[in-house]
Every structure is written in structure tokens, then in C-alpha cells.
């Protein structure tokens, strides 16, 4: 069995199963935990609406912190959206999902996806460098932070190398790209990348808690 056969076959198979298993496991486990019941009267009667409002308001920086955190927000938006576009709208990726799901969707032209992937990779590398070289960020960063960024960056990097047939043989690049995706799938449910599931609910819970106490968050 060649490296590509392994990557296309057992590696993606097991990574996919572990990904789904881990995501369902952790999601159910977290949502089944008991919530603490309030010990005082609510100071707001529209908690649901305000909780939802907090979910959306956190997508942009708070005015008071705008100068300090805008770069982080913009960079985050760029690479998250770029990653999604490349994942879902690159022709070859659409073929992958079509092979798995039985249906596909229109893709973007390769030149556009290539440009977006390049920008996404650049931003991710910049953020990784910033985390390494900024003393404050370095101080508060853990293994989970570095590994999650690197494991997210690898598929973009190897995908670009595969697309351009850069360096080594295409089948080796394609195999490495698929293995990097397998690594991402396995790492995803058990790392900070799981915030894909927890981000919005936790914002909602936080918003409700604040508004209940009269804090307009």
C-alpha cells in the first residue's frame, strides 16, 4: 500500500470516524452538564433576546477595545472565512464531498480559490509568528494554542503545495495533504478547535448571565 493509498483509504476513514465520534461525544457531554440555578431575581425580562444579541455583538470588537484588538478580529475573520471558502468551494474539494455525500455544489474558479488560500495561509502564519514573538501572547499561550494553529495551517500549506505541484511528486504531496486533514480531523474534537461547537452557546450563556444581573453586555 502506497502512502497515497493509505491516506485516501484507512487514514481518512479512521480520522473521519474519530472526528464524528469525538464531536458528538463532547457536544452531548457538555450540553448534558447541569447549569447552576439563579439565586436572585432576574433584572431583565428579555433574557433570550439579549442572549442572542450578545452572540452577535461579540463578532465585532467592543468600541472601548477597538484599537487594541481590531487586528486580531480582522485577521481572525479573514482566515476563518478564507479557510471555509477554500474548504467548501475549491473544485476538487467539492468532488471530495460529492464522493462522500452523493451531491455537490458549484465551485469557485481555481484562480480565486488559490488567491484566497494564499491570503489565508499568510494570515495564519502571521498570527502564529505573532503568538511566538509577542511576549504577552507567548506568556499566555499553551501547547494547545500552538498545536491547534499549526494543525489548522498544515492543510492549507500542503494543499497549496499540492495544487502547484511544488517540490516533490504530486502523489506524495496529495498524500501528505490528506494526512494533514486526517490529523486535523482527529485533533479537532479534543482541542481548542472544538470552539466551533461551543463558541455561540457559550456567548449566549454569558450574555444571559450578564443581562440577568443588569449588565448590558
Amino acid at each position: 500500500m502506497s502512502l497515497l493509498d493509505f491516506a485516501r483509504g484507512p487514514a481518512l476513514q479512521w480520522a473521519g470516524i474519530i472526528f464524528v465520534l469525538g464531536m458528538v461525544w463532547r457536544t452531548l457531554g457538555i450540553f448534558m452538564l447541569m447549569r447552576s440555578s439563579p439565586l436572585s431575581a432576574n433584572r431583565d425580562n428579555h433574557l433570550f433576546e439579549h442572549g442572542v444579541r450578545t452572540v452577535w455583538s461579540r463578532f465585532v470588537p467592543a468600541p472601548v477595545f477597538e484599537k487594541k484588538v481590531s487586528f486580531q478580529y480582522v485577521a481572525g475573520w479573514i482566515w476563518h472565512l478564507g479557510f471555509l471558502v477554500v474548504l467548501l468551494f475549491y473544485k476538487v474539494h467539492v468532488m471530495f464531498f460529492e464522493g462522500l455525500l452523493g451531491f455537490g455544489w458549484p465551485a469557485l474558479p481555481n484562480s480565486i480559490v488559490l488567491a484566497i488560500a494564499g491570503v489565508t495561509l499568510g494570515v495564519l502564519l502571521w498570527l502564529l509568528g505573532r503568538r511566538i514573538f509577542n511576549p504577552v501572547l507567548r506568556y499566555i499561550s499553551t501547547f494547545n494554542d500552538y498545536s491547534s494553529v499549526i494543525i489548522t495551517t498544515l492543510p492549507i500549506l500542503t494543499g497549496l503545495l499540492t495544487f502547484t505541484h511544488f517540490g516533490i511528486a504530486y502523489e506524495t504531496l496529495l498524500a501528505i495533504h490528506m494526512l494533514s486533514i486526517a490529523l486535523l480531523l482527529v485533533w479537532f474534537p479534543f482541542s481548542k478547535l472544538f470552539h466551533v461547537i461551543t463558541l455561540l452557546p457559550s456567548r449566549y450563556v454569558l450574555g444571559v448571565k450578564f443581562w440577568r444581573r443588569g449588565v448590558q453586555a
Binding site: R8, L12, F96
Partner: peptide, 8 residues
């Protein structure tokens, strides 16, 4: 296509 998984 080569981009598809063979076992999944």
C-alpha cells in the same frame, strides 16, 4: 477522482 477518499 483522486481527491476522493476510497474507504470513507
Amino acid at each position: 477522482p483522486l481527491a476522493t477518499a476510497t474507504h470513507l
